Computed example of a mutant assay.
Amino acid sequence: MMTAQAAPEPHESARKAELAGNLARVEERIESACVAAGRKREDVTLVVVTKTYPASDVRLLAELGVRHVAENRDQDAAPKAAACADAPLTWHFVGQLQTNKTRSVAGYAHYVHSVDRLRLVTSLSRAAERAERELGCLVQVALDAPSGSVGERGGVAPDGVEELAEAVAGAQMLRLDGVMTVAPLAGPYAGNPRDAFERLREISTGLREAHPAANMVSAGMSSDLEEAVLAGATHVRVGSAVLGERPRLR
């Protein structure tokens, strides 16, 4: 005798409908940007940034067809990934990463977008070896960082990309997949995400001369995804446009 499946709670149905509507609007934006750029829609991957939102939302997103989700704090990401381990999801870590968190991150993340220093490469490699999991790595570029330094929100200065990329490519259990940036709030690119993303495209093109497979370009968020798509982003990281305005952090 078959057991009837429990009906979803009213608030869960309402939340799922809200997320579905938001996803549809974001999808329309990406599709329009692809048309404007002369690109195929399938060339751009939507990564939904679920930071500050519960695992229940991640499950609803998976039910709605989302396959890529991102977090920026390990203390939130690790339990959320464990709670959703049976969902068909690819996990991206996109925040600044401390070396003492690499062992945890290597246990669930498929990609780390925020590789910005040699010490982190070494730590991630050791953690990935222990976990017996290959990690896809993106070099985070701080377009506003002075030569030889790290940006305030993470990221290596443009002139440090090549050295860091070589370190990733040569590290055990790490795979160099491309580059990432966040549109700068200061410096020559402040308020001009299109030019910032075009600069990232130039850096990506240069990187692919030595590493042809490093073709991921992670750029653009809720406010500037169109500019990112026009500048060649392969992955856009969208949070509030899908999940709503974020609650205050604890």
Rank of each mutant, 00 (worst) to 15 (best):
Arg73Asp: 08
Glu132Thr: 07
Arg130Ala: 15
Ser56Ile: 01
Val115Leu: 01
Val121Trp: 01
Ala78Phe: 11
Val48Met: 09
Val48Gln: 10
Val58Glu: 09
Val49His: 13
Tyr53Cys: 04
Val105Tyr: 02
Ala109Cys: 08
Arg126Thr: 13
Thr122Glu: 15
Ala37Asp: 09
Arg126Ala: 15
Gln96Glu: 12
Tyr111Phe: 15
Asp76Pro: 01
Val115Cys: 06
Ala77Ile: 05
His110Ala: 14
Arg130Gln: 14
Leu124Ala: 02
Cys137Ala: 09
Leu64Gln: 03
Gly65Pro: 08
Val49Arg: 08
Ala82Asp: 13
Val121Asn: 02
Ser56Tyr: 01
Val66Met: 08
Gly65Asn: 07
Ser123Asp: 09
Ala37Glu: 06
Arg67Ala: 07
Gln98Phe: 10
Val115Ile: 11
Glu132Arg: 14
Ala62Val: 01
Gly107His: 07
Lys101Pro: 08
Ala82Gln: 12
Ser104Thr: 15
Thr90Met: 05
Ala127Arg: 12
Tyr53Phe: 15
Trp91Asp: 04
Arg130Tyr: 14
Lys80Trp: 00
Arg130Asp: 14
Lys51Tyr: 08
Gly38His: 06
Pro54Asn: 05
Arg103Pro: 02
Gln98Val: 07
Arg130Asn: 13
Ala37Tyr: 05
Leu60Lys: 01
Ala37Ile: 09
Asp76Lys: 05
Arg67His: 00
